[in-house]
């Protein structure tokens, strides 16, 4: 999977990243603190739009899983791809387990350039299920294509693609229809 380094990544230097990850795997608390510093902003960016009001719980849970499993990361260069999978899945899990209402019938996803998205992202997201929010985040925040997003979510690329295709049309109709009645 494509490795994309988050903006402001403090572990962008490969030698530094290798050293910090290896020390963290050995249980060095200072290295674990450094690792936490590096990945926390990325985990917050992923968990925020997926878990919404539960984002703090989701980010905490995702980071706990990452830090507990850091010993299983064989290749430090794969750090962010590995963190992405854990964070997105934890965010979906926490959001689904939340007592907040989830739409019984999924509305559909807007296109990246849809004016509805720019108007009120939080409102748009709140109308989607956690799984649909995850697709949207992986595509628009992380810039993944359908194949990559499918790999993160554990579903075939075709499922992601068809979901996106059908989603855009239905969502836009519902959104614009509602806005015109305000």
């Amino acid at each position: 999977m494509t490795q994309r380094w988050p903006d402001g990544d403090t572990l962008s230097d490969p030698a530094t990243r290798d050293r910090v990850v290896r020390a963290a795997q050995a249980g060095d608390a200072i290295a674990l603190s450094d690792l936490l510093d590096a990945i926390t902003p990325y985990v917050r960016r992923l968990c925020g739009p997926i878990a919404l009001a539960d984002a703090a719980d989701a980010a905490q849970e995702a980071l706990i899983v990452v830090m507990r499993r850091i010993g299983s990361l064989r290749e430090p260069a794969a750090l962010y791809g590995w963190v992405r999978v854990i964070a997105v899945r934890e965010a979906v899990r926490v959001a689904r387990g939340s007592s907040r209402a989830v739409p019984a019938e999924l509305p559909e996803l807007p296109a990246p350039d849809d004016p509805a998205l720019a108007a009120d992202v939080a409102d748009v997201l709140d109308r989607l299920s956690p799984e649909h929010r995850a697709v949207l985040v992986l595509r628009d925040v992380d810039g993944l294509d359908e194949t990559e997003a499918g790999a993160v979510l554990g579903v075939p690329a075709g499922t992601v693609r068809s979901r996106l295709f059908r989603a855009r049309r239905t969502f836009r109709r519902a959104w614009l229809g509602e806005r015109s009645t305000r």
Partner: peptide, 15 residues
């Protein structure tokens, strides 16, 4: 995009 908050005490729980 909304960004999840994570205060320093929560980060200490992670550590």
């Amino acid at each position: 995009w909304p960004i999840g908050e994570l205060d320093e005490v929560r980060r200490l729980r992670v550590l």
